[in-house]
Amino acid sequence: MKQHSEKELKNIANTLRKHLIKMLEKAGSGHPGGSMSSVEIITALYFAVMKHDPENPCWEKRDRFILSKGHVCPILYAAMAESGYFPVSELMTLRKLGSRLQGHPHMCKLPGLETSSGSLGQGLSIAVGVAKGFKMDEKKNHVYCLMGDGELNEGQIWEAAMSASQFQLDNLTGIVDVNGLQIDGWTKDVKCLSPLKDKWESFGWYVIEVDGHNVKQIIDALNHAKHIHFKPTVLLCHTIKGKGVSFMEDQAGWHGKAPNEEQTKKALKELERAEV
């Protein structure tokens, strides 16, 4: 896989954001907020850290990415298209009848997707199963699972957290996009997660906190996680919901709403300026 410079990775992230805005405008619906906050995480995974082959989505030695917060799939689709899994032009079919790009991801439609998701709280358990399977077969593949912080309201996440440490799954890295917002408001007002680091540690996980919009920090942390033994690692990525478009940032209202034509123009203009 091509090695990208930090500057290139920043520009890839910016490109993904531009795809996202255009996709959602075209689709007329979708989830910009949590997608924008996850951009650097997905960029780090697909363009720097994960072993994968867009030409051969079923490559046995690939690492596995389990998207637990399925509603941010547009940003995953954008990263997959930019990686070469399918033509970038197909991104504009998002949410249309007959499209491989379902509103929430469906693995039977699109090669390269590892699961179908959309009902929150399930991905970490799936990731535990995948990682446990690799352990049984003494395989070296690594498993990544992206969750939202609002998603941590789901009790099943904590069942899975216990399972992962019980099974000593050091081939599993959880990633939480801590953007602080969910549909009904700030996570601290809905169901307070604090102290989040302590929670994961007490469940037996090794915890790394990073700036979730700093690609280099994320990459370093993901690589560091590979050297932690006998326990799973979780990255708490502190992010801003709607990151990159001024009027979407920190606004719960932009969780699940598509930009109109004018908002799209404004957003794309801001993103053009962010190019480095």
């Binding site: 699961t115 399930q122 990731a127 199963g129 446990k132 399977g133 395989k139 099943q156």
Partner: peptide
């Protein structure tokens, strides 16, 4: 898996994804 049926169902899903 312990007393965690939802976790169990999805761990099983994960195991099936690697050929079990």
């Amino acid at each position: 898996v312990g007393i965690a049926e939802q976790d169990m169902m999805n761990i099983a899903a994960g195991l099936s994804l690697v050929g079990k």
